[in-house]
């Protein structure tokens, strides 16, 4: 059961990565990468690494998303 959940989460991570690569809206890409980070955190939690899950949620989702958005403010939002 747990393996099935982990595999489903990994598959959706791959799909989200494809969406991040193909989208033209850079802000949407940042938000999607945050969503992918949450899924990775759930995978860490299910694989019995709650410490790493905490780091992933705080640094990988919160802080890096904020930094990407700050960087994005100096660029244009849409890729041509």
């Amino acid at each position: 059961m747990m393996e099935l959940i982990v595999n489903l989460l990994l598959a959706s991570c791959v799909m989200l990565t494809a969406a991040i690569v193909y989208t033209k809206d850079l802000l949407l890409a940042v938000v999607l990468s945050g969503a992918e980070g949450v899924m990775v955190a759930v995978i860490f939690y299910l694989l019995l690494a709650p410490d790493i899950a905490l780091v992933q949620v705080a640094a990988g989702v919160g802080i890096s998303t904020a930094f990407f958005i700050v960087g994005l403010r100096k660029l244009r939002r849409h890729e041509e």
Binding site: P50, D51, A53, L54, V55, A58, A59, G62, I63, A66
Partner: peptide
């Protein structure tokens, strides 16, 4: 589970 780095990242999120 937790630690200084985790707590520090969460503290930074509060200020951000």
């Amino acid at each position: 589970p937790g630690g200084g780095f985790q707590g520090g990242s969460i503290m930074a999120i509060a200020y951000i």
